[in-house]
Nucleic acid binder design. Structure first.
Lengths: 124, 124
DNA sequence: CAGTATCCCTCCGGATACTG
DNA sequence: CAGTATCCGGAGGGATACTG
């Protein structure tokens, strides 16, 4: 019963928790979409332009799934014509550590790959 | 030029870094596999037993991809018959923040969902 | 044991067109 | 604008059998 020793049990629990997180954030566009909304609310078409190349079908689907998990909120303004915006919920902020750690690691990993290739052909 | 303000540029950079990370860790089994190896080196068959239901084809593929990214190391021992083990590299430790944040969030999110459903029918 | 080789199928996601 | 409807290809991944 130490502290963070990995017994088989805690290991499996950890795997399952990670799987849960990955499930909610699965798909090609969910995290990019969330990051795009970190600047503030956007309308459907604006998100499309922001995430170049996402089709309306995909965007609609990803938005719906994120809404179901309380990670974004859809707001309807009864202007003429109607205006609809999407914004991050406060619960979404709990994802920040994930986004930060992924972003940090991705950045460093890319740098690492570049340096590796640069030193490769020289062969000291 | 403040600090962490999200301009369009840093936003895109962040999206790309996150995408890079997700790319390396993509697939159904990579993170579970890494977590399974956090207890120490394992042999092929042992990993299979640890990650119930992964087929040898998938395991082989995921191991190879992780090895190419320097995240695990394959060691050959010339016993008879030959023994092969897989273990995490020291570079793999850099993934810890990702695994931790994903695990933490997944755990809390599941708890949240359970509580939500529990309070749902009561309607205070 | 430590994998490879095939077959097969689901479903993710793109392209395109259409609606209120 | 804010989406939905349809069609479709290809990658991801499972089942099974086989090899050194």
């Amino acid at each position: 019963m130490d502290e963070e020793i990995h017994t088989g049990e805690t290991c499996n629990a950890r795997i399952n928790s990670v799987k849960d997180a990955l499930y909610v954030l699965s798909g090609k566009w969910k995290l990019p979409l969330i990051i795009a909304l970190m600047n503030g609310p956007l309308r459907f078409k604006e998100i499309q332009r922001s995430l170049t190349d996402i089709t309306p079908k995909m965007l609609s689907k990803e938005l719906r799934e994120l809404e179901l998990n309380d990670l974004i909120e859809r707001k309807v303004f009864h202007t003429v014509p109607v205006t609809i915006t999407y914004e991050l919920t406060s619960y979404n902020k709990t994802l920040l550590p994930i986004i930060k750690s992924l972003g940090d690691w991705g950045k460093k990993h890319r740098k690492r790959l570049v340096e590796e290739r640069r030193s490769d052909p020289i062969k000291v």
